[in-house]
Write a protein that binds this DNA or RNA. Structure first.
Lengths: 193, 193
DNA sequence: TGAAAAAATTAAGATAGATTAAGAACCTAG
DNA sequence: CTAGGTTCTTAATCTATCTTAATTTTTTCA
């Protein structure tokens, strides 16, 4: 367990002195989670924002108790939470589940708020993090509105090859908004050509 | 032309003293735009982020020269830009068009960057703005993945009644990701019941 | 005010993608 | 190493939504 990676992630956008670094580290909680275990369940208060040190996670929404809609994947060096419920400390709408054994650093809402007060530079860091997340989601919407399932599958593979390796077809399908059966048919078609 | 509204918008999340207020106002450019005119065209560098003082705007992506995908609407007291292209000062992917005669306050990227340096509180303001935008887009993705066109139409009407009044069926359809013909059929169905 | 343009509706035929069901190929835990 | 559970595939059938095209209604602006 080392904070090197998360500090490097932070240093992409802001520089911290020793004191600030030490304070930041003091607020982090280290957590290991086994494959298939859940970090967050629907209805629970979403207490933490999570930095993925290693492993892979998936956030999904369980629609009417059966169909799963995958909201996002997160692999090493990504941040993940149910942002809506985290910022409002409301019961979660989604599940967050480990796809592999994973190591995380967690920040509670309370600690993050303290961090913003004591080291205001972190406002900038999270401003950029939220900005990038917004841009990513907006691009995904644009693709969902304008592309066919096959085009979206191709985009996904070329944009997130490292993620595609780690997950099942079923999970890819639930991210693309199609059934696993239809994805299977798409793949068969592509293989032919 | 008065900055009251935009200052009130800012004061929802941060407080400014007189000097900061004056400096902020000095960076704003006031702009009026007539219905149907375009604030931004595909390929142009996206120079500004825009606060809507009055009126209404629509951001859309023009897919393969024909189908339009509406990314967002913005009415009074909203902010709008092509965020991806604004932050990277890249050629825009989208069009931004006035739905009605509108009045805006604009901030260039350069002025916004200066603002962040001189009044770091604005990092917090934009952190919250981006956070809310991210949450909104993520919720929209969730709905696109898990709901039928009719359910999305109902959500849109109940979430944005003020916007729904100002726009055409065609624009609603392009926001929902369906054809105007199909939306018309949905509406006919609802009217029956 | 009236002509032209744009939007909305209707309806018929087409299709992308869903559903169901069954078998084959895998994990994974005991 | 094996049994039971997932996951993946295949194929038939079904359905939500698209396409096209014609007609009506509404809006625009000269």
């Amino acid at each position: 367990m080392t904070q090197d990676l998360i500090l490097k992630n932070i240093s992409k956008h802001i520089s911290l002195n020793e004191e600030e670094t030490a304070y930041f580290i003091s607020l982090l909680k280290y957590k290991e989670i086994a494959k298939k275990d859940r970090l967050l369940k629907e209805g629970e208060i979403c207490k933490n924002i999570n930095y993925v040190h290693s492993g892979a996670l998936r956030a999904f929404y369980n629609h009417k108790g059966d169909k799963e809609a995958t909201i996002m994947f997160a692999i090493a060096d990504w941040w993940i939470t149910d942002m809506y419920c985290f910022v409002g400390q409301k019961p979660a709408m989604m599940y967050i589940e480990a796809i592999e054994d994973s190591c995380l650093f967690q920040l509670t809402k309370q600690n993050l708020d303290m961090l913003f007060v004591k080291v205001p530079k972190f406002e900038k860091f999270f401003r950029i993090l939220m900005q990038n997340a917004y841009i990513r989601e907006q691009l995904r919407i644009l693709q969902n509105l304008s592309q066919s399932a096959e085009e979206r599958y191709d985009s996904f593979l070329s944009k997130y090859p490292q993620i595609a390796q780690k997950i099942t077809q079923k999970q890819i399908a639930s991210y693309l908004g199609i059934t696993p059966e239809f994805l299977s048919a798409l793949r068969k078609n592509k293989a032919k050509v």
